[in-house]
Design a protein around this nucleic acid. Structure first.
Ligand SMILES: [Mn+2]
Ligand SMILES: [Mn+2]
Ligand SMILES: [Mn+2]
Ligand SMILES: [Mn+2]
Lengths: 217, 217
DNA sequence: ATAAATTATTAGCTAAGCCTAAATATTTGT
DNA sequence: ACAAATATTTAGGCTTAGCTAATAATTTAT
């Protein structure tokens, strides 16, 4: 149906779309996928021809209904495979992303359905991200970023937005994972960095980091 | 490391090599992979440049040690995935091949190792084919083709050589699978077709079919 | 309102993998 | 031994998916 490259673009655009109301820019896509802007322009023309997205020259792209449906199917596969790797194959949550990046492109309706069943139809992946169902419905997450909290507030870590292995390993080193209880002991005015208490340890996190940690409560 | 196409060629050549002493011909590869002879010539030049095979113009190719090792790694993955699909995901043995054809290209040493462990280090795949270990060692199978048996002989089905879904579905329809007991009631002289007794049914199989069924005893 | 900076597009090039048609080499049959 | 048949390679073309450099549009700053 679609090539691996096309699918990677669809998924990237889907993710970037979550963070803007207007069109997804060429440069944001090229940043996300580590390609040049010129390559992106080429590809989005192809995807527009296939009616997977609407493209307004110089004003970015937006997924069509079919484009979004397809992107969600890939996200679903990605997160199911990540769950499989962690739940059944003893992978660490910080080492599954690269492999899932490949596995998400396997084409077999039955495989996805059976994998989902086998895993007990999980609602969230090992990073706390919601897994779309077969129809593309996402279980909505009450999302709040750690960076939005005030001094003195307490919360539980519910998700991580940066899929890079280095970020996840960094968090693991600090003792931060899904379900970790955190208290904001101090917010530094000038760079918005935070001091946090985790159990009885104190750790420092930059704004870049706290922006990518989703919390609840 | 290698592309999907390169890996498919290596695997095809590995399989074809099992059936000849001398070089694997261009046309046999193109037949196996459903490509043209011209495409094969191009690809084997590339693979020869990478020292995965020895190529003598007009006299076919032979895998080098590294080429063979790589082919075995792909065969290993293919058969492990087939086992996973049948043993854990409720696939039928006759519907796993196409998906395994994709899964065999996933690159992750840890994934293969963990999958093997998870499945209990199986020695044979759902078609009765031996699964190479991590070092590329194949558990040797005492292989005899059903077509080699004489009238009156009895045997147990131990493997099937044609991976096509249609062949496997055909056998399933006739009640033939791994472990099925078969008695040769008649061998037709002129086309070498066989009449077989399975339980209390009698079935007819062509030479083409009996050539692709491995038996024991 | 214009100039400068930024962002996006186009043009032109490359490599992998496929193809068909033409040219060549090998094998087979007499 | 040679012609015919068959197999293989070469030549030339196409698509996908990337790149750099040049051009054009938009946005920002003066
Ligand atoms: Mn991917
Ligand atoms: Mn994830
Ligand atoms: Mn394959
Ligand atoms: Mn098999």
């Amino acid at each position: 149906m679609f090539t691996q490259s096309e699918e990677n673009y669809l998924k990237a655009i889907f993710h970037l779309q979550q963070e803007t109301e207007d069109g997804v820019s060429t440069s944001s896509i090229s940043g996300h996928l580590n390609t040049t802007a010129a390559s992106v322009t080429e590809m989005i023309k192809r995807l527009a021809d296939k009616d997977l997205l609407d493209y307004q020259k110089y004003y970015g792209v937006q997924l069509t209904a079919t484009g979004k449906a397809h992107a969600l199917a890939i996200v679903r596969k990605h997160r199911l495979w990540e769950s499989f790797l962690v739940e059944r194959l003893n992978f660490n949550w910080d080492e599954v992303h690269e492999v899932a990046e490949q596995l998400e492109h396997i084409k077999s309706k039955k495989l996805v359905e059976e994998l989902d069943k086998f895993l007990g139809r999980p609602a969230y992946d090992p990073h706390g991200d919601p897994i779309p169902d077969a129809e593309g419905n996402l279980p909505i997450m009450p999302k709040k970023r750690l960076s939005q909290l005030q001094q003195g507030e307490r919360c539980i870590c519910k998700g991580f937005n940066d899929a890079s292995s280095s970020f996840l390993k960094y968090l693991a080193k600090l003792g931060i994972g899904l379900g970790t209880a955190v208290e904001v002991t101090h917010v530094e005015k000038f760079d918005e960095s935070m001091t946090l208490r985790i159990d009885d340890d104190e750790v420092q996190l930059s704004k870049t980091a706290t922006d990518n940690i989703y919390v609840e409560h």
